[in-house]
Amino acid sequence: MKGPVPRSALILTAAGVLPFLWGVLTLLSDSAYQLAFTTIGGRFVGPYVQLAYGTVILAFMSGVLWGFATKAHPRQAPVCYALSVIPALWAFFMAGGGPVSAGMNLIFGFLGLLALDWQFWRWGLAPRWWMHLRLPVTAAVVACLLVGVLV
């Protein structure tokens, strides 16, 4: 896990955690919930924002892994491409149902994504700094989703 994370990647990743944090805030604060519900709607409060956004992000991260797969040796590439679509398929098939089961499935999806991140990094397909970025952001996302599951 060598090298500093580029500033732009760090800032954009931190911004990407904001919808998960917003979901936590609206779960824990009745006034934040009411303000958001009345001004921007029910899709943007509590677990609903976390589940919708988490599904989008898992699909997005499949695209990131696909990009890493393009760097693979031709004999390794088919495995990398196949692995890269797993997060999107997981989100599509497992993020439905009620907020608790969908939240738990997203947690497992993000933990599985972290394992794929590590593998692509280990193979030298991800940037050297990749795991410095992915470990803390995954911890933050999982913690936020846990609040949505437990509250």
Rank of each mutant, 00 (worst) to 15 (best):
L83K: 06
S62G: 09
W123D: 14
R128Y: 07
L58W: 02
P6E: 04
T38A: 15
F108C: 13
I107M: 13
Y53I: 05
T39E: 05
S31I: 06
V24R: 00
I107T: 06
L65P: 12
F92Q: 03
L58D: 01
M94P: 00
G109Q: 05
Q76Y: 08
T138A: 11
Y33N: 11
L113M: 10
V45R: 00
A15D: 07
P87F: 05
R43T: 09
V142L: 10
I40A: 10
F37M: 14
L135I: 15
G97D: 05
V49W: 03
G54E: 02
Y53L: 05
V24Q: 04
W123V: 11
S84Y: 05
L150W: 14
L51S: 10
A52M: 11
I40E: 01
V147R: 00
A82I: 01
Q76A: 14
L58C: 01
P127F: 01
R75A: 15
L83T: 06
F37Y: 15
G23T: 08
P6L: 02
G148I: 04
I11V: 15
L21P: 04
V49Q: 02
I57L: 13
G112V: 07
T13W: 12
L65S: 11
L35F: 14
G124T: 07
F68A: 13
A72C: 08
M131T: 07
G46C: 07
W123R: 12
G112R: 03
G23I: 08
G96E: 03
L21R: 05
F110H: 09
T38R: 15
